[in-house]
Design a protein around this nucleic acid. Sequence first.
RNA 1: GUGGAGGUAGCUCAGUCGGUAGAGCUCCAGGUUGUGGCCCUGGCGGUCGCGGGUUCGAAUCCCGUCCUUCACCCCA
Length: 421
Amino acid sequence: MTAPRAPKGTYDLLPDEAAARDAVVAVAARVFAAFGYRRVVTPEFEETGLFARGVGEATDIVRKEMYTFEDKGGRSLTLRPEGTAPICRAYLEHGLHKWPQPVKLWYYCPMFRYERPQAGRYREHYQLGAEAIGSAESMVDAEVILLLAQLFAELGVGGLRLAVNSMGDPACRPAYVARLREHLRGREAELCGDCRERLELNPLRTFDCKVESCRAVLDDAPHLVDHLCGDCREHFDRVLALLRRAGLEPELDPRLVRGLDYYTRTTFEFSSDRLGAQSGVGGGGRYDGLIEQLGGPSTPGVGWGAGLERIGLAMGETDAAAAAPQVYVVSFAGDEREAAFALAQRLRAAGVRTELDLAARSPKGQLKQAGRSGAAWAVLLGLDDLAAGAVRLRRLDGGGEEDVALEAAVERLARLAGEAS
RNA sequence: GUGGAGGUAGCUCAGUCGGUAGAGCUCCAGGUUGUGGCCCUGGCGGUCGCGGGUUCGAAUCCCGUCCUUCACCCCA
């Protein structure tokens, strides 16, 4: 079997599926606009160092999931594995700190991660995302979360729950991490091998572990939310209050430690019970240290990403009906085919959705296609009983015919099609 | 990287105890010396994922391999 296939973890969207995708993105564009977010487009690949520095050397993404390659000039480049670092890079590169803050942006683009595919997980997947950069106000955290909630509501994404947590900031996290590490060291014998590594690299990640014995240790572990500094505590409480006031019911989840190193303070994740094991449909958080980490001035930011494939799964399949042609041009005589072709072009130029046979079908075959295409009208050329220079318009949905001069057909059909729509 | 399940026509699948491959849908044509969706008939379409082994004979049994899929890790 040498026939080429789509690479592992990638997929094609055939027209019906692409139309469904377009419909989702169109809803998103409208919701983003309502919240004052404007779309940005960044490159599909970046310098590898952007992700290594921005996302964190210790993360799975950087350690084992990046599509990294060297170009012919010897540069190390990486296909974008996540959306936030590139946008922060663009914010810095173009001096967006001079715009009114916060700068509110959204994106829709593919992400690339080398992982084993499974339900709702791909090596190339599409994300919709929002970033609000330049304000540390708790209201911004609440706004981006409410934006995502409204998007899900308008799309009909169901079975949702919202988990939130706070990761603290440089004032309180180091002390907490030390405390956690101490707790884990005390019971290291009960931890799995992975967690013993995490203990050294990043103890917070042990909260992700599902191994029974580790969970027992972590159930007794101190939680970061209980050890936040005053500023972080106040920020978190305000975010929660704003969300509740807006009608959301955020569930505190001390275990919600997302796998990207740049998060500070608020983290959140929407999950849906309509998905498989990969139940997260959208999530994000605040990243007040990221831009500084990239070499810029200290600049706060908050945002999220949401997977289009998972949104599709959680919405249920919605079949987007193709826009049927309004007119189908049929030629009954072989020497009328060019006239039919010309007529179709004139109809299209007049804004009428028009199809005609491009496969040399018999007249019967053409009518069959016309019927199946969903067109409301067929234009018949080349019938023996037609007057010279005339064509016949036939209603396909109820019957009924009228003959008109070829020259008048475009105007007549444009009018009929306009009435029908 | 690890584990489970599965690869037969473009799609969805059947194929008995090993005997040399079928159905439905789609597509095309005819039924209707030129008027459609339904219906009827016919046609197109398969190295049974690939390689090796057992056998007189393999889609079927064995081994390997690739791919798909679900799950772990982690994320969208």
